[in-house]
Amino acid sequence: MIEVEVLLAWPQRLLSRRVQLEEGATVADAIAAAALEGSADCPAVAVHGLLARPQQALLDGDRIELLRPLLADPKDNRRRRAHGG
């Protein structure tokens, strides 16, 4: 058995759940087991801050981060700041 943490963060809120899985479990297995509200709305996932695929195998102690969609395009934000907006 391995134990991993699955988390989903917002600016003012954090959902986190530790789950125990069989050896060889994947990122997708952990997300399904954690069943965090809002996880279906996350277009990407990372393991310890590095982008990961759903079929990636996990190790004991891994931290799976559900990545929320961007609310604004970073390039547009930089342009706006550069033009004083």
Rank of each mutant, 00 (worst) to 15 (best):
A33C: 04
E3F: 13
P69S: 07
R63E: 09
E3M: 08
V27Q: 07
G61F: 12
W10D: 06
H83G: 11
A44F: 14
A33W: 04
P11N: 11
E23H: 05
E5P: 03
L51H: 13
Q56G: 07
E5I: 09
V45N: 00
G49F: 14
A33L: 06
I2T: 01
L8A: 07
N77L: 14
R81D: 14
V19C: 04
R81T: 05
L15G: 00
L36S: 06
V47R: 03
V4D: 03
V27L: 04
L14F: 14
P11G: 09
A25S: 11
R63G: 04
A33M: 08
A25Q: 02
P54F: 10
R13K: 14
P11M: 05
P74I: 03
L58C: 00
R68V: 04
L70M: 15
D73P: 05
G84H: 13
A35H: 11
D62Q: 04
R68I: 01
L67Y: 06
R68M: 10
A52L: 02
E3S: 13
S39F: 12
D62N: 11
A25E: 00
A28T: 02
R63V: 04
Q55M: 03
L59V: 08
D62I: 00
Q56T: 06
R53Y: 10
I31W: 06
R78A: 01
L58M: 01
I2R: 01
D41I: 00
I31L: 08
I31G: 07
G49P: 12
A46Y: 08
Q20W: 15
D62A: 03
E23Q: 04
R78T: 08
D76Q: 14
A34L: 07
R18V: 05
G61Q: 10
R18S: 12
P69N: 10
P69G: 04
L66W: 08
R13S: 12
L58F: 04
L15H: 12
E3Y: 10
Q12A: 15
Q12V: 01
E65L: 05
H48A: 05
P69K: 10
V19L: 09
V4F: 04
A46P: 07
E65T: 05
A9T: 02
L71N: 14
L58R: 02
